[in-house]
Design a protein around this nucleic acid. Structure first.
Length: 804
RNA sequence: GCCGCGAUGGCGGAAUUGGUAGACGCGCAGGACUUAAAAUCCUGUAUGGGUCACACCAUGUGAGGGUUCGAUUCCCUCUCGCGGCACCA
């Protein structure tokens, strides 16, 4: 039976910490350096806290506690990302209003989070679905609207037939709805967008950010900058007929291949597609466009799929040499990127090459490799090289030709340099109930009118029928379809769409330090003092959406003069994924693991430490409960060490061990290597149980374990007679000279192979070390009769004798 | 296809700038305690050979090669796994 009663102790301290307000942040504290320690706030689903939450929050909390012990004024808030589809789906299924089920879930999760023993500042709790919060989300919308960063556009959008809602491209995973997994189709709708593209260039700059390289790379990829040129082609509807006034512009990164353009391809969705098609091709083209509409982007973009296309009967005139080339329509060209049209250079582009071979189109070589040969009869040559068949530009290198040719056509008014981004504007409208309503009204007289700020929040009406019927549920709310214009008081209707939940989560970190402010979204002075967030911990799945949107919002707020910093998150860390039998845990697979039963059995400290001990924090791992016993045993041993272990003499070995442990734990915590923090504490405990331990060393051991086992440490701290919380104590330092032992085990190698070990004085000189080495039997056996070529001595470590 | 990351005992994993591979934990085996079990404690535990037992020897960090006195660590080639992006013009 263990002496340590985890449950009693954990409950005792959770109550006391709350009563004392230990973790309530003093935002005005000028003595300590501020530290904003943030985790990605949870979505309050009915599943309660799962292992993934624990794996994120518990180590993040340990990090916060460590920073506090290091003397920082740590602000560690928590809240709930409580708008969203699951609550709405739940409501549709069970008839319980989202507000109700959400409130219930939050209440339960709050309890679990408290039982975890985290140092959250509950005074600053927020949830995005409360009117006190979404009032300010709506305010944010109005700021972007006034700045011209919010606009409406009719566009083909992804439509999920099951959720009866629109999905952003970013939310479609493998052709399926990210949340419900239904096959996604297309539909034309008028939607609200945020102009995130205005910030594309600045969002590529990560200077001064301590982010995982991987995440930076992913965002850069997502934004997808390419530098190239635009070229304008005039259109003619017959090979020999006169030229029309129509033009098609293409974007290319390889204008050096312009002389090799032998045809043009436009996307089926290109606005001119039908217009330029001649009579005899019309039927064909219409057929093709219809087919393309039915294909999902995924099928269209499948690499293994054979390329298809149809001729329009029209021709384009290459501005550089007047060459007349046929215009085709093919679905391998996407309307959403660039201009929706490309010049095809089959000799130097693989896709164009495959297409040209299939439809027997001309291939003209215009780039030769600088060294060696290429064979365009066999495949396209896609690298840079030297121009041929390019008139005045012959013999020029690709790099130079890109500039010279662009300048040439620019003079003729047929093109220019151009930078293109893959990033699309952010589609924020949702035809859903459970989100923040968009504060816009449509007046018969005044048109589109933003709601005055004083009228916020525009509250979600109750009793709305939110069963999906292809329209926004709010279209059935009387207040929304029948309202007054704030301008002229005339009849008007409200916007019935709500906002993407990513809007809510794009600014919550600004709200936390002022979560109770009723007059402002955030307090400029406090936010400027407390942000950027010093540490942000959350899943890597948010690399391209949430983390990009949050950066965008921060930059917009800066440009509007509300804040004075450029980036929201100074340091970012992603926790790894916890799997079960190497598969992602999910309710549908039935392979979820409930943390509660383990917390019940062993206590939260043990569970927290076990999660940390499993492996490196950023790598995650496969859940297996067989090892948790080891942590429970360790906690008992550690408790015994502090509680029962007799005071021993403060001997030298213990002291050196202690200081080495301080250094190792400090270094590893700095790198968030919690797994080796646990094992280091185990080693120390095992050793100290043998040597006995003095009270001062006990206190230090408690401080070292406090970040990863807060209740245990606090309890024993009190037992040792301390009256202040251990989390108000100061992190121990170590003495450098105590890190090494007086004696070392010298390793002796012959030709790099270990042949003997010998305990010697740590400061032994090279000559003495080699002399001792050679005197050993086993070494003599290995060097006997051989010529010594070299003798290597690594101070304090090893001797290597090289023989021939 | 491209980009990134990874591969170490039966298992999770550890290993400063290249310097004792396998820390710590789980599991397993043997022993102590117990009427017995659980719990706890002690000992052992990479593989093969060798020894009564040590000593000792060989092999060994996905595969093959290279650099080096010395490689889990650096370089090249390949295989497999994971994550991201993907007809991006």
């Amino acid at each position: 039976m263990s002496l340590y009663e985890a449950h009693k102790v954990e409950e005792k301290w959770q109550k006391k910490w709350a009563k004392d307000g230990l973790y309530n942040t003093n935002f005005e504290d000028e003595d300590r350096k501020k530290y904003y320690n943030l985790v990605m706030f949870p979505y309050p689903s009915g599943d309660k806290l799962h292992i993934g939450h624990w794996y994120n929050f518990a180590p993040a909390d340990s990090w916060g506690r460590y920073m506090r012990l290091k003397g920082h004024n740590v602000f560690e808030p928590i809240g709930f990302d409580s708008f969203g589809l699951p609550a709405e789906n739940y409501a549709i299924k069970h008839g319980i209003p989202p507000a109700k089920s959400t409130a219930k879930n939050i209440q339960y999760m709050r309890k679990q989070l408290q039982a975890m023993g985290t140092m959250y500042d509950w005074n600053q709790e927020l949830s995005t679905s409360s009117p006190e919060y979404y009032k300010w989300t709506q305010w944010m919308f109005l700021q972007l609207y006034k700045k011209g960063l919010a606009y409406k556009k009719k566009s083909p959008v992804n439509w999920c037939p099951q959720c009866q809602t629109v999905l952003a491209n970013e939310q479609v995973q493998e052709g399926k709805c990210e949340r419900c997994d239904a096959e996604v189709t297309k539909k034309d709708l008028t939607q609200w967008f945020f102009k995130i593209r205005n910030y594309a260039e600045e969002l590529l700059n990560f200077d001064g950010l301590d982010w995982p390289r991987k995440t930076v790379l992913m965002q850069k990829n997502w934004i997808g900058k390419s530098v190239g040129s635009e070229v304008v082609f005039n259109i003619t509807n017959g090979e020999n007929s006169t030229q029309s006034d129509k033009t098609i512009t293409v974007f290319t990164t390889r204008i050096d291949t312009l002389f090799g353009a032998t045809y043009m391809v436009i996307a089926p969705e290109h606005p001119l597609a039908l217009e330029i098609t001649t009579e005899n091709h019309l039927e064909n083209v219409k057929d093709y466009i219809e087919k393309a509409k039915k294909e999902t982007d995924i099928i269209r973009s499948s690499e293994t799929r054979e390329k298809t296309g149809v001729q329009t009967g029209s021709f384009a005139i290459n501005p550089v040499n007047g060459k007349v080339i046929p215009i085709w329509i093919a679905d391998y060209v996407l309307a959403t990127y660039g201009t929706g049209a490309v010049m095809a250079v089959p000799a130097h582009d693989e896709r164009d090459y495959a297409f040209a071979k299939k439809y027997k189109l001309e291939v003209i070589e215009v780039i030769k490799p600088k060294n060696g040969e290429s064979d365009i009869e066999k495949k396209a040559f896609t690298e840079y090289g030297v121009l041929v068949n390019s008139e005045n530009f012959d013999e020029m290198e690709s790099e130079e030709a890109k500039e010279k040719i662009t300048e040439f056509i620019k003079e003729k008014g047929k093109g220019d340099f151009k930078v293109q981004y893959k990033l699309r504007d952010w589609l924020i409208s949702r035809q859903r109930y459970w989100g923040a309503p968009i504060p816009i009204v449509y007046c018969e007289k005044c048109g589109e009118v933003p709601l005055p700020e004083k009228d916020l929040p525009l509250e979600l009406p109750e009793g709305v029928d939110f069963n999906p019927k292809g329209k926004s549920p709010l279209a059935t709310a009387p207040d929304f379809v029948n309202t007054k214009c704030p301008n002229c008081d005339g009849p008007a209707i409200r916007e019935v769409d709500t906002m993407d939940t990513f809007v809510c989560s794009s600014w919550y970190f600004l709200r936390y330090p002022c979560a109770n402010n009723k007059d402002k979204a955030f307090d400029t002075a406090r936010v400027n003092k407390w942000l950027p967030v010093d540490m942000y911990i959350g899943g890597p799945e948010h690399a391209c959406m949430h983390l990009l949107y949050a950066r965008f919002f921060t930059k917009v707020m800066r440009d509007l003069g509300f804040i004075n910093f450029n980036e929201p998150f100074k340091k970012l860390v992603h926790q790894g994924l916890i799997t079960k039998d190497s598969a992602k845990m999910s309710k549908s697979k039935g392979n979820t693991v409930a943390p509660d039963e383990f917390v019940e059995k062993y206590g939260s400290d043990v569970f927290r430490m076990y999660l940390m001990f499993m492996g490196p924090f950023t790598e995650g791992g496969d859940w297996n409960d067989s090892g948790i016993k080891g942590i429970a045993r360790f906690v008992d041993k550690f408790y015994d060490l502090i509680y029962s272990q007799q005071e021993g003499k403060n001997d030298d070995a213990l002291k050196r061990n202690l200081h080495r442990t301080i250094k190792k734990v400090t270094d590893d915590l700095d790198k968030l290597q919690f797994n080796t923090v646990v094992s280091t504490m185990m080693e120390f405990t095992n050793a100290a149980l043998k040597t006995r331990i003095d009270p001062d060393s006990k206190r230090i051991a408690l401080q070292l374990i406090a970040p990863i086992a807060p209740h245990l440490a606090e309890e024993l701290w009190e037992y040792l007679g301390e009256t202040e919380s251990i989390f108000n104590s100061e992190w121990p330092g170590y003495e450098r000279e105590l890190l090494v032992d007086k004696n070392i085990e010298l390793v002796i190698q012959v030709n790099g192979k270990v042949r003997a070990k010998k305990e010697v004085d740590a400061n032994i000189e090279k000559d003495d070390a080699i002399k001792i080495a050679k005197s050993l039997n086993n070494i003599q056996a290995h060097i006997e009769g051989k010529e010594i070529v070299k003798e290597i001595y690594v101070p304090g470590k090893l001797v290597n004798i090289v023989v021939k």
